[in-house]
């Protein structure tokens, strides 16, 4: 449905082949990763304004308006919105920031954690909000940029806390190891800190959002095909069941979307906790 809405607004849209689940010859075309590329304005080049960028801009405007207006009208007896904002903030502050980073150090990192959490949560939930229906993070560039911010932060913090770059590299290997184990551990720890962590942080979010949305597409488009072009009653019935299952999976997606925002934030906090800790 959202595709039709968008096509009406942007007639020049180069819609992927998925708009009709069936191709010209009437066979079913399974949805793939091509369904996630949606240039709206600017043609097919790297600087095109795409649908995920529009969703991201909407989410930033929405979050900014929501939190700024809520924060400028704080009252002793909270309104409903203030209660919601305080609930989310309290969750990030207490069960992510304070529990993971520790009572002494967690305060300076709260803005980062809160921004990352709310941003990812809203963008993920946009995946199942009618008329938006696009998880921004299913385009890998967005998680990469978020990860880049986290990556730079935890390295800079660690280099400051551990007395320079040399001290940082020294602190990677835990003290008290046998001498022959030190080079092996050093290679492993460098690989973990500099490659595996950012790679998995970005790709976990990306992979979950892509796979979840792709699964919804399969059930909905497959259900449509079975219902309209299946040809007999049994196939039409299985099409209806496929739609029903798509609804169930939508609620499952809501859970996954929240969980991924939580995991990204808690891993950010974990990496920061590693950076500020005195010992390894």
């Amino acid at each position: 449905m959202s595709r039709n809405v968008l096509s009406a607004h942007f007639p020049s849209i180069s819609a992927p082949a998925v708009v009709a689940a069936a191709e010209e010859d009437g066979s079913f075309k399974a949805p793939g990763t091509a369904e996630f590329y949606w240039p709206l304005i600017g043609g097919d080049n790297n600087w095109a304004l795409t649908r995920p960028s529009v969703v991201l801009l909407i989410s930033v405007a929405l979050l900014g308006w929501f939190f700024i207006t809520a924060a400028s009208r704080l009252q002793l007896v909270p309104t409903r919105r203030q209660f919601l904002v305080e609930g989310v903030y309290g969750f990030v502050r207490n069960s992510i920031g304070r529990d993971v980073i520790g009572e002494r150090e967690f305060r300076p990192f709260l803005p980062l954690l809160f921004t990352v959490f709310t941003m990812i949560l809203l963008n993920n939930v946009f995946g199942i909000v009618p008329f938006v229906q696009f998880p921004t993070m299913s385009r890998v560039a967005f998680p990469i940029v978020l990860t880049l911010a986290v990556y730079v932060t935890y390295h800079v913090v660690a280099i400051r806390r551990k007395h320079g770059v040399v001290g940082y590299f020294k602190s990677l290997v835990p003290a008290g190891l046998p001498r022959w184990l030190v080079p092996i551990m050093f290679v492993l720890e460098v690989a973990t800190y500099f490659f595996i962590r950012p790679l998995t942080l970005a790709l976990r979010l990306f992979g979950n959002m892509l796979a979840g949305h792709l699964m919804l597409l399969v059930f909905i488009l497959g259900g449509e095909y079975l219902l309209l072009r299946g040809g007999n009653v049994l196939l039409a019935f299985s099409g209806v069941m496929s739609f029903a299952f798509a609804i169930v999976m939508t609620f499952f997606e809501l859970l996954v979307e929240f969980l991924q925002a939580f995991i990204f934030t808690i891993l950010t906090a974990l990496y920061l906790a590693d950076a500020v800790s005195e010992s390894h």
Binding site: V100, L199, T200, L203, R204, G207, A211, I266, L267, L270
Partner: peptide, 21 residues
């Protein structure tokens, strides 16, 4: 325990994520 569990999960899940990539 939550901290330890999520560290372990991040390490373990790395393999599956590399597989997907």
């Amino acid at each position: 325990l939550q901290t330890i569990a999520f560290t372990g999960m991040a390490l373990t899940e790395a393999l599956a994520i590399l597989g997907l990539v």
